[in-house]
Design a protein around this nucleic acid. Sequence first.
DNA 1: TCTGGGGTCCTAGGACCC
DNA 2: TCTGGGGTCCTAGGACCC
Length: 416
Amino acid sequence: MKEVRTYFHVDMDAFFVSVEELYDPSLKGKPVVVGGQSHERGVVSAASYAARKFGVHSAMPLRTAYQKCPQAIFVDGHPDRYREYSHRVHDVLESFSPLVEMASVDEAYLDITGTERLYGPPLRAAHLLHERMKKATQLNCSIGIAASRLVAKITSDQAKPNGILWVIPGCEAAFLAPLDVRKVPGVGKVTEKNLHLLGIRKVGDLAQLDDGFLEERFGKWGMALAGKARGADAGGWFDTEIGEDAGPKSISHEHTFNEDTGNLEQIEATLARLSEMVGRRLREHGLEARTIQLKLRYTDFSTITRAHSLPRATQLDTEIYEEIRELFRRNWKTGAPVRLLGVHASGWAEGGEQMDLLGEDRHQKWKETMAAADRMRDRFGEKAVSLAASLRGNFRERTHENPVGLPGKNREKNSK
DNA sequence: TCTGGGGTCCTAGGACCC
DNA sequence: TCTGGGGTCCTAGGACCC
């Protein structure tokens, strides 16, 4: 007989907005939109509850948010702040239970099975944690409690804001049945629409159907859905134990221009900057990527991705950039204005991949150069050392006589 | 409505190998 | 030459999440 476990899903309330309020208390209680200025290209990252009353929600274009709520205060996002507070949240959770898994910056799963003697029954434990979180971070959270991770996640959503909710084991199906299918994690716009076409609107409707039917229509997901509708952790990610947070599987950076551009110099300078950012993160994580991918979006929003796998993994800005530039030149509809560019790295090399002997010396030199550049950036800011900046200066000469990718004498000149 | 940026996972076809 | 069955890697696209 399988032991009944107890999971918490802890979700911070309006996380980005709440963190911004700590930096600027005058924002409290007001309609606040985090993500950028009201006229900018971009979408809402987070909206305060006051702003939500006007119909503003995350993922909505900023301009739309402005139309719905012109009196809202628009605030730029601060990823560093959110990361810092995410660490604090993590620390609180770890002090509470050793089995913690951060699912994103502002949410986590805890396995608190067997902590009754320490904290008492689940509801009491949740109140203790809630209190501890508020005291340590000044932030509110909501906590869902259930015998499975999936149900705990749905439950925390129902508990919002600033609430605690427990689905007693055995009551899962009854709790889930009246909820919209959209409440099931993994069911988004498209799947919801397809389910509606089949007359399936509530999770309870799903539970009636047999696995085969759902699998045929929705593939692997369908299979899991029926189980989920019955409250089980059926298949996929939700089956896994709560454990150590694994490292990243990919690292990417992308940029949307304020105005679309067909200017090759501007485009390549941007690709260089994005390549640097990716290279830097790879080095921070001690990773080397085998596959480099370009993302290219045109004015009409049509988007392509083009990838290439290297014979040898890299973490060097210049090698990433060379590959990206080649991918871009091969795939750009020449002259067509570009809306977005992205650089994506994945496919980590297994530890200690061989380097060819001839390349090793050059490679080592570059590694040292890059490490030094990273230190400069730490001390003097991102602008201190830049491949992109050097490219803007004398791009043509470099491409012909001093191809980017080899240590060049021009570099020092630009680093001061 | 005029649509960010960072990710994960899944599907599917073709190459290539045995 | 009308032709098999897997396994794995690569690539492209898309749904979804926060």
